[in-house]
Amino acid sequence: MLVINSIEKGIVIDHITAGLGARILSYLDIDTSKHTIAFIMNAESKKHGRKDVIKIKDVTDVDLANLGLIDPKATVNVIDGHKVIRKIKLEMPETVVNIIKCKNPRCVTSIEANAPHVFRLIDRESQEYRCEYCDDIVSMKEER
């Protein structure tokens, strides 16, 4: 059994769908040369069988806005004094800008370089987003 100590202050991103931890870590864009980070892959989970976990020491102000897009099942715990002071349940954002790119070759974003790639959530269940311009539908389940 691998043991990672609890942190005094920082954030713990738990219940990450196994395999998505690396994408979340990359999205958070944290300077790994400055911070202490524990990244656990394929940990045993009572709920999901397997999960990834990320612990980041002494950092509490990460941009969580689009984390739900990568994995809506993950949870974020903000830790201070070894205690969970805030639990954040991630949700799929209603609108995402410049996170997903439209792959429809007929979409105007394929030629208009400065146009932001805007997607709006159309179905939380199927995790589908629609391109603001061409209406092309992207399923985040398939994207992962």
């Binding site: 429809n104 007929r106 979409c107 105007v108 974003t109 394929s110 030629i111 208009e112 146009a115 391109c131 603001e132 311009y133 061409c134 209406d135 092309d136």
Partner: peptide
Amino acid sequence: HPKEGAPRIGSGFSDIPLVNAGDGGH
């Protein structure tokens, strides 16, 4: 415009009415 959604881009930069007269097969 042949590209889908081109008039929507245009409308964001137009302070006069803009009418889509066909954007590809969209």
